[in-house]
Design a protein around this nucleic acid. Sequence first.
DNA 1: AATAATAGTGAGTACTCACTCATTTTTATA
DNA 2: TATAAAAATGAGTGAGTACTCACTATTATT
Lengths: 216, 216
Amino acid sequence: MSREDQMIEEMFNHEGGLTERQKKILAAAIESFAEKGFSATSTKEIAQKAGVAEGTIFRHYKTKKELLMSIVTPMMIKLMAPVIIKDINKVLNHDHQTFEDFVRAMIDNRRKFLKSNMKIIKIFIQEIPFHPELKEQFIEHVGSKVFMRLRQIVVYYQEEGQIIKLPPDTVIRLTGSTLIGYFVTQYAILPNSEWDDEAEVDATVGFLMKGLATGK
Amino acid sequence: MSREDQMIEEMFNHEGGLTERQKKILAAAIESFAEKGFSATSTKEIAQKAGVAEGTIFRHYKTKKELLMSIVTPMMIKLMAPVIIKDINKVLNHDHQTFEDFVRAMIDNRRKFLKSNMKIIKIFIQEIPFHPELKEQFIEHVGSKVFMRLRQIVVYYQEEGQIIKLPPDTVIRLTGSTLIGYFVTQYAILPNSEWDDEAEVDATVGFLMKGLATGK
DNA sequence: AATAATAGTGAGTACTCACTCATTTTTATA
DNA sequence: TATAAAAATGAGTGAGTACTCACTATTATT
């Protein structure tokens, strides 16, 4: 395990050092922030939902905003970790022979992440416009590192002749748009409707592959 | 001009019957809601920015929320109007010979709409998660009508043999994801960066066309 | 068992919130 | 120009707001 891997492992387990009450506060805050938004949620409400005195919240988090950040920041670490550790290695080790293999693996991987972090991701997206630090943190963590790796991956498959030689950033944008659109439709727009997932995944991946096929 | 067209015209000009002070209040509210969010904006702040007494706001709008709705609702009418009136007719009149012509016209059309309604659209997107009525209104106006028309358009080009015969809703999703991704990248993610728009539009449209090409 | 350190409490603080209403200012009508 | 109607005002209202702090309960250390 590399030094970088260890760093990330530590960041993951950072949540381990939480008291029982702290966990309750976090759970209550996640619930309320996701539902009503940061601004419209009162600390009194969080305390009640957590079954804790209001003062207890401020013993652990200096401000309400610090509570928000302690929910959202670790999620960003989680967001980037698998991309820069596992998937990139699989590509470089030729575990994913085709770009399609890679995309399908990404879909699986990101779906799991989405499902187990729905509420926190919701909070993150909802609050990004109002807290510039969030965007900055995101660029710092995800933007620089993940993007760099994704560029490498794209260039790799381009040089293999599997996908069109557009600028890598453009390829990432087109692929990202398509996959995010797939997830948003399934989980945000039509969360309760009938949805033939196998067919939709096939259509989406098929569309992507044809759209990015080499011009030859 | 059909009865439906007239209805929409009326809805458009609904803004006409506004006093000078009302316009100032709306402008101030749009500014603050877009920047800080609905919940974090106080009526006092809006009044000050508009150069108006706080009571004046409540003479025209019973509640702060009614003020929000009076900003956001007309925008939804504007959003759907051009789609259901102009573009659909052009398609049915064979003004857009190819699906590519249609997509490019849509990009132009929606870009103009976006540019002249940036802040209100920002407010709408930011507040949707916290006000279920907004989502319901959106489905009622945009969802039902616009979607129906888009389905017709897709079926038309499918029967012409220009695009693949996936379920129309899937085609709309893939096209929508691609175009929304293009706009979001340009205006929300990289609003200050260098961006070769001609190249990006060509890449995006090219990707779409190849991705949706018939399998023949 | 005594002491120290940490965690938890909830009433209290100064302040802000959306909204009201009696009063004043502006506009329309005669 | 006098009178009625409409619009605008801003001090006032009670109900919150995030956050503090003197105090109590619990846990760890000697």
